[in-house]
Structure formats: structure tokens, C-alpha cells
């Protein structure tokens, strides 16, 4: 008697929009995205995309981000004059997708934080838990397999917020971070928008 085990993998797919300096477009189209690190307040290391979620138009949010991100506040001038938005189809196995926009994903991160806190308490230590660091820790230490993380955050997408350093606590964007762009995006990247940086923050 033969027993066949059938594993059903659920693939999650969504559209991602990445705003950037137009000068980066050729290298991204040719070599793919490279991950950035150090975004402790977002979703940890990875390549970031605006995706559909609590926001209706992630492409437009990527445009706004690319325009405002051009501003170099130290040198008080724009780092680039032409922005671009790239579209990618992001695909990921559900078992490697940490979705922090729903209760299931949050429960996982909360559970890891709880175990950290309890373990550290045994030696009288406490730390500031920060989302991005916790995700980096869980992923890099292989506590869980994460290739893509999605979450809701607040991002300043208008000049006034940035000039006056205003932040709301109500999130306005759904973003995702892709840690293995070659696995989850590949070469499936298209330039969907390009334009001049219209604003100067001075």
C-alpha cells in the first residue's frame, strides 16, 4: 500500500510599488533590488514596497515618498531631480509570509517578544523592543522562516509633516519588506512612473 503525502503550499501574491531615484532604475532592472538595512522602525532589513492595504493607492504613495525622500536636509537641496516608481509582482509562500496587518502575524511577533522578555527577566535584564529589530532577530536567528513581511505604518507623505516633524499614531500606509528579492520578485520589475521632483523643502 502506498501512501502519498500531498503538501499544499499557498502562494500569496500582491503588487508592490517602490519609489526611488531615477538614476537607480537601470541597475535595478538589470540586477534586481538590493536590500537596505537599518530601518529599525519599519519592518527590519529588506527591500521596501508600498502595497495595497489601508491605503487605496500605493503607487501614488510611492511617488510621494520618492519626491519627499529626494530632500537632503543636511545639505538643504534635493539629492536627485528625477524620481521613478517601479512595480513588482511579489510572490511568497504563505508559510514564509509574516503578515502583521492581521492577528495571526501579530500573535507570532508577540509570542517571540514574550519569550524574550521572560528569558531576560531570569537575569534581571530588560530591553526596548523595536519591531524592526525583533523581525531581524527572528529571521536571522532562524527562529521562524520569513521572506516577506507586511505591516501598517505611518509615513510622512506631505511636506508639512516633515518640516514640522509631525507624526500621527493612526497608520496611513501598508508596506512590505522583501528580504530575498531574487526569490520573491526576480526580474519581474517594470517602470510605471517617472517625473521631476516638484517640491523643495527649505
Amino acid at each position: 500500500m502506498h501512501v502519498f503525502l500531498i503538501f499544499i503550499y499557498m502562494i500569496v501574491k500582491f503588487d508592490g510599488f517602490h519609489g526611488t531615484d531615477n538614476d537607480n532604475v537601470d541597475s535595478i532592472l538589470q540586477d534586481g533590488f538590493k536590500i537596505s538595512s537599518g530601518d529599525k522602525d519599519w519592518l527590519g532589513d529588506g527591500c521596501y514596497f508600498f502595497v495595497e492595504g489601508i491605503n487605496k493607492n500605493p503607487c501614488e504613495q510611492a511617488v510621494q515618498w520618492a519626491i519627499l525622500n529626494a530632500w537632503d536636509k543636511i545639505n538643504r537641496k534635493n539629492k536627485y531631480v528625477t524620481y521613478a516608481v517601479l512595480h513588482s509582482n511579489i510572490t511568497v509562500d504563505d508559510s514564509k509570509f509574516l503578515d502583521l496587518t492581521n492577528a495571526d502575524g501579530v500573535e507570532i511577533l508577540d509570542y517571540i517578544q514574550k519569550l524574550c522578555r521572560e528569558k531576560l527577566a531570569t537575569i534581571g535584564k530588560r530591553i526596548h523592543f523595536i519591531d524592526g529589530y525583533l523581525i531581524n532577530f527572528a529571521r536571522t536567528e532562524k527562529i521562524i522562516d520569513i521572506e516577506v513581511t507586511k505591516g501598517n505604518v505611518y509615513i510622512k507623505l506631505n511636506i508639512e509633516d516633515r518640516i514640522h516633524n509631525l507624526s500621527r499614531r493612526i497608520n496611513n500606509c501598508t508596506i512590505c519588506s522583501v528580504y530575498l528579492p531574487s526569490n520573491n520578485i526576480g526580474k519581474n520589475i517594470k517602470l510605471v512612473k517617472k517625473g521631476n521632483v516638484e517640491y523643495e523643502i527649505g
Binding site: 529599525k40 529589530y133 536567528e141
Partner: peptide, 24 residues
């Protein structure tokens, strides 16, 4: 799987990993 990691790692090692490697 998560429980197993925390069973194996010592509290001191965990503290060092979190604060030194991950900048907590």
C-alpha cells in the same frame, strides 16, 4: 520551533545577541 530556540539559548547569550548583534 520557537519554544525550542528559547529552550536552547541561555539568558545571557540571548541578552548579548539582542543587544550586540541586533542593537536592542
Amino acid at each position: 520551533r520557537i519554544d525550542k530556540y528559547f529552550e536552547i539559548v541561555s539568558a545571557i547569550d540571548l541578552y548579548n545577541i539582542l543587544t550586540q548583534k541586533y542593537k536592542f
